[in-house]
């Protein structure tokens, strides 16, 4: 197990930008899509996309770990 890589960290920055820091941009009711207020829909979509971001980060991290394990 290594220190987290810069690549994985930058993938993790995306959910923070979209779900947290950018709140003034998306905290509104309209446009209502799929019957949901815009802020709620935005968060729901990003919960799923965050999981996807972390899956990419997981691929990055395991790729780094594997050669080290072989060398041991």
């Amino acid at each position: 197990m290594k220190k987290p890589s810069a690549a994985a960290l930058s993938l993790a920055l995306l959910p923070f930008l979209t779900m947290c820091f950018s709140v003034p941009l998306w905290d509104r009711i309209h446009p209502m899509l799929l019957g949901l207020p815009f802020n709620m829909l935005w968060l729901i979509v990003w919960i799923v996309l965050s999981s996807l971001c972390m899956w990419c980060a997981y691929r990055v991290e395991t790729a780094r770990d594997t050669p080290a394990r072989r060398g041991r």
Partner: peptide, 9 residues
């Protein structure tokens, strides 16, 4: 959601 993102690291 973000708590798990943090935990990964």
């Amino acid at each position: 959601t973000l708590a798990y993102v943090v935990s990964f690291f």
